[in-house]
Write a protein that binds this DNA or RNA. Structure first.
Length: 230
DNA sequence: CCAGACGTTGTT
DNA sequence: GTCTGG
DNA sequence: CCAGACGTTGTT
DNA sequence: GTCTGG
């Protein structure tokens, strides 16, 4: 997992969809090619007020006790199957769950050893949705604060299986609140999404270059290679 | 007991 | 902070 | 994300 | 130009 995520809606739309107020900070520009180590808006409960807020956070969770930040290079995803056994996620699972808004994500299908075909995956409805996530706050040596997050993954459903063996968990809109608010972590929500409610289509290799970030990245193409869908 | 690790995927 | 391995 | 590297051999 | 490492 898990390709790169795409967020093609404007932040105003996403914010209103998820019931959080929109603040036009620089980090809220629409993204079409979201990558680990980049800063993204997440939805969380404010640690003091316990109200929902949209907050900038870097993809790749660094636990508060980390001596240095490089553990964040390997925590962009968290496996939901055994999430409650991992020290690195334990406190965040209990106290700092979050939502990562998106309206699609990318995944790469392996064609040969070196050759891969990127796909966009979205809901039939083309509605926005949320990945369940965990976040934590880390203080670097200068004392400056860095908020970071991980996205929960699960096994591939029937739609994803031809593309990849893992996929991000997608929450039903009606479950978003439970993920944020439940006293105990609602692990039963961490399951593959209904495959009949999802679509996938091939897109240009340009998505593989992180510098490309424009709306044409998610336009369908004719696959250059024979894929498992052919 | 304490030292050392703590994570995931494979285009993250 | 919390767990594992020695 | 982007700075920085970008090589070879491995029984010769 | 493309890949890797942090």
């Amino acid at each position: 997992m898990c390709g790169r995520y795409v967020r093609s809606s404007t932040d105003e739309l996403l914010a209103s969809y998820f019931g959080v107020s929109y603040t036009p900070y620089p980090w809220t520009a629409p993204s079409f090619n979201i990558t680990p180590q980049s800063t993204q808006p997440i939805i969380r409960l404010n640690p003091r007020t316990h109200k929902r807020e949209l907050a900038p956070s870097r993809w790749g969770l660094i636990p508060s006790w980390a001596k240095d930040s490089k553990i964040g290079l390997k925590t962009f995803n968290a496996r939901s199957e055994d999430i409650d056994t991992k020290p690195v996620f334990r406190q965040s699972l209990k106290e700092r769950r979050c939502l990562i808004p998106a309206d699609a994500f990318y995944e790469w299908q392996k064609i040969t050893t070196k050759d891969r075909q990127p796909f966009v995956i979205a809901l039939n409805s083309r509605q926005p949705f949320a990945f369940p996530g965990l976040w934590d706050r880390w203080h670097d040596q200068d004392g400056s604060i860095l908020d970071t997050f991980s996205i929960l993954t699960t096994s591939a459903n029937a739609l994803m299986a031809p593309i990849h063996d893992r996929m991000p968990v997608i929450l039903s809109p009606t479950d978003n609140d439970a993920w944020l608010q439940s006293k105990e972590p609602p692990l039963q929500l961490l399951r593959p999404f209904d495959a009949t409610q999802m679509l996938a289509w091939p897109v240009s290799d340009r998505v593989g270059n992180v510098r490309n970030n424009d709306p044409t990245l998610i336009e369908p193409i004719t696959p250059r290679k024979r894929t498992l869908f052919d």
